[in-house]
Amino acid sequence: MSDQFPVEAGHIMLFARSIGDKNQVYYDSNYALTTEAQGIIAPPTFVAASAQFDEGYSLRPKIGEPWFGSGKTPTGIEKQEGGSGGLHAEQHYEYHRHLRPGDILHSVVKEGEKWERESKRAGKLKFSETITEYYDQNDELVITARSVGVVTERPIDQ
């Protein structure tokens, strides 16, 4: 994400609902003022939603372009190599402070290590690591994220 990610209260509310979190510190600004957080904050995994503001993000339909999900046919495009595509293997966050509505984040993305491993359940696994540093409107580092993605040779046996 090189674009700006504006942290908004409505988005925090939707995100908190979607993870099943009813803590009112994510919903009610009057209540949140009475808490130690002294206002609405974002849940710890909220920066995952930076995908919404990533112009080139491949897992969001682009207006006017074919989409690989189903329509008239099971997929809108030719099947991609890797079958299931990429899956998320690991996610790690380090919090320098917690996000609040009004923050405007930008990020610096660094490619990390790449490695491969054989697995019984999914064949060859290709892992790749990405480090994302999220900075606020004052250029202060707020969250450091380390993500590991994996592309499987075939769908994981169940």
Partner: peptide
Amino acid sequence: QYAGSSGDYNPIHTDEVYTKEIAGYP
């Protein structure tokens, strides 16, 4: 809901047709 809030619209999470017939998951 999570797809909508996070912005991760990968059909393997929400599109049963794609997931069964293309991705190969139950």
